[in-house]
Amino acid sequence: MAEFEPKIVAFVCNWCTYAGADLTGTSRIKYASNVRIIRFPCTGRIDYMLLLKAFDEGADGIIVSGCHPNDCHYTSGNFHARRRWIMFRSLCDFTGIDTERIKFSWVSAAEGAKWAEIVNTTVASIRELGPYTDYKKVAKYPEKEVIHG
């Protein structure tokens, strides 16, 4: 059997982590190709429902990343996001959603190497955890996959 390749969805902010990921590319740093990056205007825009939907659609792991505190392009978006993440993470923990599979990080536009490291470590840890079967079973994902083609 081929080795399990995890599907990772990354929700990143336009101003820091997206630019950081761009720098990773232009610096020719190689990193795992399991990640699908979705660009948001700000971490404050990253709705927790989107994270649930990512798992629903078959993601095995999620990365949420944006500007470091005090660096937000919109001054306070990441501060609001941080509060939301703190509460959402503890609610996930309480409902039994695997918090190991959601990685939160701050990656600035200058931290190309950090982005590669975040992705690589996340892919490695998710590979160890295996596919998120608990969630997929409840989401009835195999049937859905057929519908989406």
């Binding site: 005090n70 993470r89 975040i118």
Partner: peptide, 16 residues
């Protein structure tokens, strides 16, 4: 309100 405000020094231990 808790979720409509923030403090710059809110503490967490899971963001890398």
């Amino acid at each position: 309100n808790l979720m409509s405000t923030y403090k710059p020094d809110d503490k967490e231990n899971f963001i890398q």
